[in-house]
């Protein structure tokens, strides 16, 4: 019997190991199922977020159009109508010619504005402009409004992210700018975009009234959106603000080697 002892012991041990391996496979498959489900949920929420972002962008575009039509095109057309009403057939030819020239100039301006509007409608997607193009366009609108002193600094050689990531990044940028316009009472907006080798960085500073970051009542939907969207694309976000001392929001997205390589090519 002692002769068979090691053989029995080894057989028993091997049986235990074999059962252990089978259990490991079963556990792995269980975890794998969970992982696949979570991934699918994440994908669904990502797609939902993309859809929401697109809708928000469309809404923003519609607002811009409405504002442009009301403030600019509508005003000029009213002026044109006023000038037409003021035309008098009994006036001398040179005066008449001068008035028609004015009308022609105003009509030309309306046409030009409509062209610009049409152009902005055609190229409002991130896919066509690219992230940096979209940020520059949005920043231009902000600058034109004349309500803020602005500065935009772009560092590094721009590279691209997948369209959906760029869309989310742009939506974060828009959200921050909208928050500043609505709540910050700022006079200065500074934006720094860095296409660093290891990460993409978007930093937005304002000199507005700021807020207490730790006070949860201040964490409205806008800030929540910024946090959620950053997490969704794997970006780190940092919100630094104190009452009366302005706000700094920084988004950092790690860049994979392949992304950087593509940019280099």
């Amino acid at each position: 019997m002692p002769d068979a002892m090691p053989i029995i012991l080894v057989s028993f041990l091997l049986l235990v190991v074999a059962i252990g391996i089978i259990m490991l496979v079963l556990l792995y498959q269980k975890k794998q199922l969970q992982y696949i489900n979570e991934k699918e949920q994440l994908k669904a929420s990502f797609e939902k977020e993309i859809l929401e972002s697109k809708l928000e962008m469309q809404e923003q575009t519609m607002k811009n159009i409405s504002q442009e039509v009301h403030d600019n095109i509508g005003q000029v057309l009213s002026l044109v109508r006023l000038n037409i009403n003021a035309l008098d057939c009994n006036e001398s030819k040179p005066v008449m010619q001068e008035k028609i020239k004015d009308l022609s100039r105003l009509t030309g301006k309306v046409i030009q504005d409509l062209r610009d509007l049409s152009k902005s409608l055609h190229s409002d997607t991130i896919t066509e402009k690219g992230l940096i193009g979209a940020i520059e366009y949005e920043f231009d609108l902000l600058k034109k409004s004349g309500a803020f002193a602005t500065s935009l600094i772009i560092e590094g050689e721009p590279y691209t992210f997948p369209d959906q990531k760029e869309l989310i990044l742009f939506r974060i940028f828009q959200e921050v700018i909208n928050n500043i316009i609505k709540h910050a009472q700022a006079s200065l907006i500074q934006v720094r975009v860095c296409f660093c080798i290891d990460k993409f960085m978007l930093e937005i500073n304002d000199d507005g009234q700021g807020f207490d970051v730790n006070n949860t009542t201040n964490n409205g939907l806008g800030l929540k959106n910024i946090r959620n969207r950053s997490q969704l694309i794997g970006a780190l976000h940092n919100i630094d603000s104190q009452p009366g001392k302005g706000t700094m929001i920084k988004i950092e997205l790690p860049v994979s080697y392949t992304n950087f390589n593509q940019a280099m090519v």
Binding site: M5, P6, L9, V10, L13, L14, V17, A18, I21
Partner: peptide, 13 residues
């Protein structure tokens, strides 16, 4: 795992 665990007991004996 099977071989080396079994072998461990074997060489000890």
């Amino acid at each position: 795992v099977l071989y080396y665990l079994g072998s461990f007991v074997i060489v000890i004996y």
